[in-house]
Amino acid sequence: MCKHTVIELSVRNHPGVMSHICGLFARRAYNVEGIACMPVNGGGTSKIWLLVDADRRLDQMIKQVDKLQDVLDVERYDGGHEVFTKMSEFVQ
C-alpha cells in the first residue's frame, strides 16, 4: 500500500479553482484520495487539503500545482493532517 501525504493549498476562491486543481491530478492519472475545502478570510481565499499517494511523481505534481495562477501557497504534510483524521470518522 502506498504511503499517503497531505497537500494544503491556499487558493483564490472562485468557481473554477477546484476544476483546475482536480483536472491537473486527473490528467496525470494521479489519484486524489480525499479532498476538503473551506473558505477563509470572508471567502476571498480558500484552503484546500488534498490527501494523495506519496509516489515518486509527487514533487513534480506539487510544482505543477504551485504553477496554477489561483494557487497562492502550497504546503506539504508528510505526516498526515488532522482534517482527514477527523473526516475519516464519518466513513467508519
Partner: peptide
C-alpha cells in the same frame, strides 16, 4: 468553453 480550455491554457476566465 471554460471547461474545454482548462487543460490547454495557462489560465482561463468565464
Amino acid at each position: 468553453t471554460y471547461g474545454l480550455s482548462v487543460p490547454i491554457t495557462k489560465y482561463n476566465f468565464l
